[in-house]
Nucleic acid binder design. Structure first.
Length: 635
DNA sequence: TTAGGGTTAG
């Protein structure tokens, strides 16, 4: 923290004091001196710029009012609220015997800047000087401190009898919420006799932040008065915890309730649209922003471009990107990642070079995009060179995610030994996600030996997740080793590991429809299955052979075929075909990697129907057209 | 005569 020594008493007045700005009446500027303290107080409250504050500060010094408690307090508060914590601190340090107002104010200033230790330091100094804290002091200091310090403060709050104060209690709820101690937050909250909208929102935030969305929703529904903050907390809670559809539905309710969304709402809902791949809703939101005076600053614009890219419309993403006047590295990263996600690796790398050319500093996220781009195009040499440059040229230490990108890149290119070496020589402990990437590569190249070695070690270290088990099981199944498959299935059952169900979704008329394999829940199931039958007829007529070897279960070939026919991807596609106009593109989002049988079948469907089909899976986009896919069957 | 402080979303 910097503390600029500002005014050596008496401070020289700033270069030119414009007396009219200091005057209370524009006609008698010069004769108004000496200014009375209350006039100065009014001026201080009206001052908007640091320059004006400095002028008033100079006037205080000239008139011997620089120890005036109220004026000093107002000036100090104004400095820190205008972003000059340094001036604020300098003023505090030069004040003799600060009173409780000034102490609380400087504590508040430090807390607002996230400098919790400095705030605590002032607090202890205050106690040492014999100044008693009050409820205002506690509500200020609680907002930045750690849960450990907060617990000590909590006991002082009780000891000094401030625990019935609404603001202090709200601060305590927030303290425990920030520290992840939902139980304690709840305890404080439940013992509040009086609850304000803010304290209710603090508790709501606590639930929503920690993924307790059901509890949050109960509280939210009980709230009689709802402001934009609590709508935002609830919507963002859904968006951040894998429930983007709920976020979108709630946003519609918010509009119906005539609540006015702000930038925060927009950012959360755009994220939800991106997760869902809900392009229609995203577009609607874009026009809502434009028609409702919501400022398209760099944050909103980046969220928009990210939404477009995740919803499959890279053209729109690029349009938004090009219109951002003050692009920061986050905007560049989003665009680079967008290109990588769609398999436009060259564009991603060119954009990266351009970003370097204009002198913007890359971040670790930039390299996720860059290495991802190399991975999707199989650019092994380039990938290595970027990976090494991270540390050597950009001073960025590769994180486990970057190793993951490299393992993907090497693994898919068939360089399994190199990938394995890289993982073994890492300084950090590999996590199941990283092993999963390597296992995936083993499966892709049919290297059962390495796959087994990795999987067994994971199982041995209790690190096997459902993905690991499924991959290994897939490998066994592909080799017809049903005994191995059965062993894995038993292992999964015994350890309670559950397979994440594959789910595909498609947006039609602003609503997102989700399908699981073999799903019969959709109101139009009958039509969907009729369409599926027709689709199977097309496949057969084109001599398509189902990839029954990827079916996990030890069942007959016919049953295997049948299980492939009702994969979630195909159900979503069938619904898309019956519910959208002929010739329009179909966009599908899958939560896992697209299955290779569905991939092959979709290529054919794109040819037969003449439709463009865009499929986003967990890893990347596939653009199907005329019988081929943009990934070049390399994914 | 008067005058000043605190809590929730990102």
């Amino acid at each position: 923290m910097s503390s600029t020594p500002l005014f050596n008493t008496p401070a020289p007045p700033p270069p030119s004091i414009n007396r009219t700005t200091l005057s209370c009446s524009s006609t008698t500027a010069a004769t108004n001196f000496p200014l009375s303290p209350n006039k100065l107080a009014v001026l201080l409250d009206k001052s908007n710029t640091i320059r004006q504050l400095l002028q008033i500060h100079a006037a205080l010094l000239r008139h011997g009012l620089h120890q005036h408690p109220i004026l000093n307090f107002k000036l100090q508060r104004s400095y820190s609220s205008r972003g000059r914590l340094d001036y604020s601190v300098a003023l505090f340090k030069r004040t003799l015997n600060p009173n409780i107002f000034l102490y609380t104010s400087i504590i508040n200033a430090y807390a607002l800047h996230g400098l919790s230790l400095e705030a605590l330091f002032i607090y202890t100094r205050m106690l040492f000087e014999g100044v008693q804290p009050n409820e205002f002091t506690f509500s200020s200091i609680l907002k930045s401190c750690s849960i450990e310090h907060g617990k000590m403060l909590h006991s002082q709050v009780i000891k000094l009898g401030f625990d019935s104060d609404l603001y202090v209690k709200t601060g305590l709820v927030d303290l425990y919420a920030r520290g992840g101690d939902v139980g304690s937050a709840q305890l404080v909250f439940e013992r509040m006799l009086e609850k304000s909208l803010v304290s209710l929102t603090a508790m709501l935030t606590c639930y929503a932040k920690h993924g307790e969305l059901e509890e949050a929703r109960v509280l939210f529904d009980e709230m009689v008065k709802k402001d934009v903050v609590c709508w935002n907390v609830m919507i963002d809670g859904y968006a951040q915890h894998g429930m983007p559809n709920e976020a979108l539905v709630l946003f519609r309710r918010m509009l119906a309730a005539k609540a006015r969304p702000n930038e925060i709402t927009i950012l959360a809902v755009l994220s939800a649209c991106g997760q869902l791949g809900a392009l229609e809703s995203g577009r609607w939101l874009h026009s809502y922003i434009e028609n409702n005076d919501i400022q398209v600053n760099v944050r909103v614009a980046t969220a928009l471009l990210d939404m477009y890219s995740k919803c499959g419309s890279l053209e729109d993403a690029r349009l938004v990107f090009d219109r951002i006047p003050d692009k920061d590295v986050v905007a560049w990263n989003s665009m680079i990642i967008g290109y990588a996600l769609h398999g436009f690796s060259r564009d991603a790398l060119e954009l990266f070079q351009e970003m370097c050319r204009i002198g913007l500093r890359s971040t670790d996220i930039t390299f996720i995009g860059v290495l991802g781009a190399c991975g999707h195009a199989g650019l092994v040499k380039e990938g290595w060179s970027f990976f090494n440059a991270m540390r050597d040229e950009y001073d960025i230490e590769p994180k486990i995610e970057h190793y993951g990108c490299m393992v993907n890149l090497l693994g898919r290119a068939g360089q399994l030994e190199e990938a394995y070496e890289l993982v073994k020589n890492m300084k950090m402990e590999p996590d199941p996600v990283l092993w999963g990437a390597l296992l995936g590569a083993c499966r892709l190249h049919g290297n059962l030996d390495m796959g087994e070695k990795i999987a067994e070690s994971l199982v041995g270290h209790n690190l096997a997740n459902s993905g690991t088990c499924i991959l290994l099981s897939n490998m066994y199944a592909a080799k017809g080793n049903w005994e191995g498959v059965a062993r894995i299935r038993t292992l999964m059952k015994d350890s309670g590991v559950q397979k994440e169900p594959g789910c595909s979704s498609i947006e039609v008329n602003n609503r997102v429809h989700e399908f699981l394999a073999g799903d019969l829940k959709h109101p139009k199931s009958k039509e969907i299955y009729l369409m599926l039958e027709e689709m199977n007829g097309w496949l057969k007529a084109h001599g398509y052979i189902p990839q029954t070897d990827i079916v996990l279960h030890d069942i007959g070939d016919l049953q295997k075929e049948q299980s492939l026919e009702v994969h979630s991807e195909k159900l979503a596609l069938a619904y898309g075909l019956i519910s959208t106009q002929h010739g329009t593109p179909i966009k599908i989002v899958k939560n896992l990697r697209v299955c290779s049988d569905c991939h092959a079948a979709t290529k054919l469907f794109s040819k037969i129907t003449g439709r463009k089909i865009v499929m986003r899976d967990r890893n990347r986009f596939h653009h199907f057209a005329n019988g081929s896919c943009s990934c070049g069957d390399y994914w």
